[in-house]
Amino acid sequence: MAVISTTQQRDKVSSYQSLRSLYERNITVNSIAEHLATCHLHDDANQIKQLMITKDYDVLGVEDNGIVIGYVVRENLMEGICQEYYRSFSPTELVSESTPLLQTLFILKEIDRIFILEGNRITKVVTLADLQKPPIRMLLFGLISLLEMHLYRIINDYFPNDTWKQHLNPKRIQFAEDLFSLRKSKNEAIQLSDCLQICDKRDIVLNEEALRERLGIDTKTKGKQFFKKLEELRNNLAHSQNINTEDSWNEMFSLIEQTEKLLEECEKIN
């Protein structure tokens, strides 16, 4: 097996960082935002509530003299006019249309909805339900794939000549070797480590104590819990399933934060 030089390793890390910046900076909140429909300050609240039920709106912007000055929440509307129920926008609820999608996720960890500023006008809204949309799925799948690429690079560096085999059981090694033979028969220029699955990379990293500590993984138990959830998320993304498993967005946000942290540690190993 060819030895990868330090320069080549740095180039790989740099290329991965470039790929990561694509997800972090070039996909913005606008890709999942919905147009903010509006009502007027003096509209009948009950009528607006019925309209929101019919249209399946959770929130509606409130206009006064042609300017959106706040919003109403469907479940709060009762007798009276919308002026009695509208909320002014909080600074924490407002983001620019150019806000990166990844940053949006962390904002929605703290609040249920955000409103989008285009210039000096509030024109769009994003709620937790919008996190099921394709751009979010692309972002999350990209981050997981990027993590797998880093782990592959690190494993090849740490374990020359397939010495990573010491950390896998015979069944997993055989699976990799069978896949390797199949792909080689198709004239693919690969090595055995190309055939490792995410569960294999997990076991190799977690069983190598020095590497595990370098990646900031406290214990094997915590590492297994993290990778199990990450694999479940990847499978849900790949099969177009609901990504909010067990209706816990907090758990999802925590998993994304952990993935980001692990990616940062991977990038330090070059």
Score class of each variant (00 low, 15 high):
93 E>H: 09
81 I>P: 01
8 Q>Y: 01
66 G>S: 09
61 G>T: 07
41 L>M: 11
46 N>T: 10
89 F>K: 03
76 N>S: 15
85 Y>W: 07
65 N>M: 10
57 Y>Q: 07
6 T>A: 11
57 Y>M: 05
56 D>R: 13
11 D>S: 02
18 S>D: 04
61 G>K: 05
43 D>Y: 09
7 T>R: 08
92 T>Y: 02
64 D>P: 00
14 S>W: 00
13 V>F: 01
19 L>V: 01
45 A>L: 05
28 T>I: 04
87 R>S: 14
13 V>I: 12
8 Q>M: 03
32 I>C: 03
8 Q>D: 11
15 S>V: 00
83 Q>E: 14
61 G>R: 04
43 D>P: 04
13 V>S: 00
89 F>Q: 02
15 S>H: 00
48 I>V: 15
93 E>I: 06
5 S>N: 03
87 R>C: 10
87 R>D: 03
46 N>C: 04
63 E>R: 14
55 K>R: 15
27 I>F: 04
71 Y>T: 10
77 L>R: 07
15 S>M: 01
66 G>T: 11
15 S>F: 00
50 Q>M: 10
80 G>I: 06
91 P>R: 03
14 S>D: 00
79 E>F: 08
82 C>D: 03
47 Q>V: 13
39 C>Y: 05
17 Q>A: 07
10 R>L: 12
68 V>G: 13
75 E>K: 15
55 K>A: 15
14 S>H: 01
40 H>I: 04
77 L>S: 13
54 T>Y: 09
62 V>A: 08
44 D>Y: 02
56 D>P: 02
48 I>T: 15
64 D>M: 14
50 Q>A: 12
47 Q>I: 12
24 E>V: 03
10 R>Q: 12
89 F>T: 07
84 E>F: 07
32 I>L: 03
14 S>P: 00
89 F>H: 01
26 N>H: 06
54 T>N: 13
90 S>Y: 01
65 N>H: 13
60 L>K: 09
50 Q>V: 07
59 V>M: 10
73 V>N: 08
38 T>L: 02
24 E>Q: 06
76 N>R: 15
64 D>I: 06
65 N>L: 08
35 H>A: 06
47 Q>W: 06
31 S>A: 14
35 H>N: 11
41 L>C: 02
16 Y>M: 07
18 S>E: 08
8 Q>R: 06
38 T>E: 04
28 T>W: 05
86 Y>P: 02
9 Q>R: 14
64 D>Q: 14
61 G>E: 09
25 R>L: 11
50 Q>G: 04
70 G>N: 04
42 H>V: 07
50 Q>F: 06
33 A>K: 03
53 I>D: 15
12 K>H: 03
92 T>G: 00
69 I>L: 12
31 S>V: 01
37 A>M: 08
16 Y>P: 01
12 K>N: 07
88 S>N: 12
86 Y>T: 02
73 V>L: 13
82 C>L: 04
23 Y>C: 00
91 P>K: 07
20 R>H: 10
91 P>D: 06
67 I>M: 06
88 S>M: 11
24 E>T: 03
91 P>Y: 05
83 Q>R: 15
76 N>Q: 15
59 V>D: 10
18 S>C: 02
69 I>Y: 07
55 K>D: 14
76 N>A: 14
65 N>I: 05
18 S>G: 01
34 E>I: 01
43 D>T: 09
11 D>E: 08
47 Q>M: 08
51 L>P: 01
